[in-house]
Design a protein around this nucleic acid. Structure first.
Length: 493
RNA sequence: GGGCCCUUAACUCAGCUGGUAGAGUAUCUGACUUUUAAUCAGAGAGUCGCGCGUUCGAGCCGCGCAGGGCCCA
């Protein structure tokens, strides 16, 4: 079975010795009255002359460092609020308790009570009057100085990562804060949060490969959703005029620093709005969140500054191709020349692909990665936007935008197509064209078309990838740094 | 899916041209009642990711596999 190495055996041995001394190794009746940060506030560190709290403090935490002097010791404790130092003296806690103290290990969770004092060097410290072991740790923690850097172990054993790398906890706290701020922002604007199905009979709302599952009692296949879009629009038909959902989407595709098979998406829809209003809304939402999270709008991402100060740059697809990508106006105006340029750049286009698809590919190649500061791209070709409303003046493009920051797509939005006949045609065309792809399970969602036939108010809708937004706002280069338990292959046995 | 790179003690890492496996931290023993990566003395700790091959001899060379990273599709 489990072949214990020496360290693990020693830990178990110590645990047994503690039990022999009458110690319950896993108690559940200790109530800390103060967090370490409450007992030892930041101001106590900032100002070495400041007065410390009076009276008894009762705290609990994990031992993360120990400096032992024989008859006394300094320990570094960590709880959710942070870290702090405690001082244990044999004379103070008594011989019997000091014997128990000697059996404690780094990693153990203990509780203690005591008063505050400053050490010779001025560090505020809890002078322990009594302590009690709360939870015994049977595994050694990574080294104190370098911490845990092996990314594989950091992701597989996130609990260890969280114990020893405090900045990781900060990132995930920020993530939660970001989501909370999004909720507040939308609720202030009369949006309501809804929950729509995660299991779909038809994989729709985005062209992505779905995960397939099966309902036994009903004897039917289901798909984990690739997007909630078609359900949220049904709610617009039903009369909810401002809805949003923050939840997981699942896409059965490759993994990368920007893709996890399950990821968190914000989608929101607003009746009687256009994509232009959503651009303003997005700018306001992201900047207000960034200001609250980072106290600045000029942030660092992978060693480079990113300026989120409004107003953000707005380009049409053609303008971006011309001004950022260096493609001449002459070429952009001529479908044949556009196609020729795409081929010249080595882009592989499918048989059916037209100039719209070619522009999209050219954009990916020549423009996307250069959009460091926030940039809205509008006027996407109709050819690549099956659910978006066509522009009234130029039906070859749609009333759509995408937002790029640090060369990454952060948001995708458009004025929604609400003509049921047009929508049915586009969906049927899409299914016909994808008929050969066995992994996409193409099928037209006729119930969605039926819903539109009842009449969906004009609306605009948007999706924002929460993981990517969190990456941006926490300076995390990999999506795995902002997902607590990212997907990995099974551990080798 | 393709290319390149990584995998050595619990952790962070060395290991030269193929010749008996190294350090720091952690751990254990001893000393030490104000340390800050405490200090001092000593000790133990390894299936060098897994498998096959080449060789008198492989952590190191070759092939395959697994896991991870980066880039590309």
């Amino acid at each position: 079975m489990e072949d214990l190495n020496k360290t693990l055996q020693q830990r178990r041995q110590k645990a047994a010795e503690m039990a022999d001394l009458g110690v319950n190794l896993y108690i559940n009746d200790f109530k800390p009255l103060h967090s370490l940060r409450q007992a030892l506030p930041q101001t106590a560190y900032d100002d070495p002359d400041s007065a410390l709290g009076e009276g008894e403090f009762i705290v609990a935490g994990r031992i993360i460092a120990m400096r032992d002097f024989g008859k006394a010791a300094f320990l570094q404790l960590q709880d959710e609020s942070g870290r702090g130092q405690i001082y244990i003296k044999k004379q103070e806690v008594g011989d019997e308790h000091f014997e128990i103290f000697k059996k404690l290990d780094i990693g153990d969770i203990i509780g203690c009570s005591g008063t505050l004092f400053r050490t010779k060097k001025g560090e505020p410290t809890i002078h322990v009057r009594s302590f009690t072991p709360i939870t015994k740790s049977l595994r050694p923690l990574p080294e104190k100085f370098h911490g845990l850097t092996d990314v594989e172990i950091r992701y597989r054993q996130r609990y260890v990562d969280l114990i020893v790398n405090p900045e990781v906890r900060d990132t995930f706290r920020k993530r939660v804060q970001i989501i909370r701020l999004i909720r507040e922002f939308l609720e202030e604007r009369d949006y309501i949060e809804v929950e729509t199905p995660m299991m779909h009979p038809i994989a729709g709302g985005a062209t992505a490969k779905p995960f397939q599952t099966h309902h036994n009692a009903l004897g039917m296949d289901l798909y984990l959703r690739v997007a909630p879009e078609l359900y949220l629009k049904r709610l617009l038909v039903g009369g909810f005029e401002r809805v949003f959902e923050i939840n997981r989407n699942f896409r059965n595709e490759g993994l990368s620093t920007r893709h996890n098979p399950e990821f968190t998406m914000l989608e929101f829809y607003q009746a009687y709005a256009t994509y232009l209003e959503l651009m303003d809304l997005t700018e306001e939402m992201v900047t207000s969140i960034c200001q609250k999270i980072n106290n600045t709008l000029i942030i660092q991402f992978e060693e480079q500054p990113v300026d989120l100060s409004p107003p953000w740059k707005r380009y049409t697809m053609d303008e971006a191709l011309h001004e950022v990508g260096g493609v001449s106006v002459d070429i952009l105006a001529d479908p044949d020349k556009t196609m020729a340029l795409a081929k010249e750049k080595g882009l592989k286009l499918e048989e059916k692909a037209g100039p719209g698809k070619a522009k999209m590919e050219l954009f990916d190649l020549l423009v996307e990665e250069k959009l460091i500061n926030p940039t809205f791209i509008t006027a996407y070709p109709t050819e690549v936007s099956p659910l978006a409303r066509c522009n009234d003046d130029d039906p070859t493009v749609t009333d759509r935008f995408e937002l790029f920051i640090t060369g990454r797509e952060i948001a995708n939005a458009f004025s929604e197509l609400n003509d049921p006949i047009d929508q049915r045609e586009r969906l049927e065309k899409q299914v016909a064209e994808r008929g050969d792809d066995e992994e996409v399970f193409p099928e037209v969602d006729y119930d969605f078309v039926r819903a539109l036939e009842y009449g969906m108010p004009p609306a605009a809708g948007e999706g924002i990838g929460i993981d990517r937004l969190t990456m941006l706002l926490t300076n995390s280069p990999s999506i795995r740094d902002v997902i607590l338990f990212p997907h990995l292959r099974p551990e080798a046995k």
